[in-house]
């Protein structure tokens, strides 16, 4: 579905990505964790075509939509306009399919995007990406600046999208706990290189990762059980 092979990206004389390889299979939820400056955003920007790699391969079966770091909405335009512009590629401008999945957006559809709260904006950003009818959704720093409960709601939406619609998910996160919670598999990116990969369970238990990213939890702790999904219109069911 998404296959990245030996990707090298440079900015001038600085190397941001130094031979990164990863893959996301159909219907998978995969996380990419790492500290600030590891090159995570560079990777996603390369996937969505904003940045050109120096060498390496990116293969995407279908369409990839990128939910950028920091929401990046069009603040003067309404929520509905923001969504409709997301359909530039797909051609299907009718936002009702996104309202079906994210009903809160329907309620605020006429509000200017710049006046929304952080959580609402993040939801709009996700909705806008969904309008492109993607096969892979790459979400960059979902949790940035948001309250945990909002993040939890958003994560549940994403999980539901993955389970119900088979949309693959690549979650780029500094918050490793969230990443392991939501995704089955993960990569660790540090200074432009993949330094660890494996199932979320394994990585969460690994002492190095725990020390670096999870504040040193013990080996007995594992990922939490999924929380209940938020209420949704009929036709949708949580796990």
């Amino acid at each position: 579905m998404l296959q990245v092979t030996d990707l090298v990206v440079r900015y001038g004389s600085a190397t941001a990505l130094d031979g990164v390889s990863l893959h996301v299979d159909d219907g998978e939820r995969v996380a990419l964790v790492g500290p600030n400056g590891a090159g995570k955003s560079t990777l996603v920007n390369t996937l969505s075509g904003v940045v050109r790699p120096a060498s390496g391969q990116v293969r995407i079966d279908g369409r990839l939509a990128h939910v950028p770091e920091g929401r990046q909405l069009f603040p003067e335009l309404t929520v509905e306009d923001n969504l409709r512009l997301g359909a530039w590629r797909s051609g299907n401008r009718d936002p009702s399919r996104v309202y079906a999945v994210l009903p809160d957006l329907d309620r605020i559809r006429r509000q200017r995007a710049g006046t929304l709260s952080g959580g609402q904006q993040q939801m709009v950003a996700v909705g806008r990406a969904l309008m492109a009818d993607p096969d892979v959704l790459a979400v960059d720093e979902l949790s940035l600046g948001l309250a945990p409960i909002i993040v939890s709601e958003l994560a549940d939406h994403l999980r539901a999208l993955n389970r119900e619609h088979g949309m693959s998910l690549l979650l780029i996160e500094q918050n490793a706990r969230l990443a392991f919670h939501l995704c089955e598999r993960a990569y660790v990116l540090e200074s432009g290189r993949v330094t660890a990969e494996g199932s979320s369970d394994d990585l969460a238990r690994s002492p190095e990762v725990a020390r670096a990213y999870l504040g040193g939890i013990t080996e007995q702790d594992g990922p939490d059980e999924p929380t209940a999904a938020p209420s949704a219109p009929s036709g949708w069911s949580s796990e």
């Binding site: 969505s48 904003v50 990128h66 950028p68 990046q72 909405l73 069009f74 603040p75 003067e76 335009l77 306009d81 409709r84 512009l85 997301g86 530039w88 590629r89 401008r93 806008r128 492109a132």
Partner: peptide
């Protein structure tokens, strides 16, 4: 118009516009 809004988007947030494929 859709195109008119796309034009506004370009100056409002060129990065996001690019991501949307504009």
């Amino acid at each position: 118009t859709y195109v008119g809004k796309a034009l506004t988007a370009c100056s409002s947030n060129p990065y996001a516009a690019r991501l949307a494929g504009i």
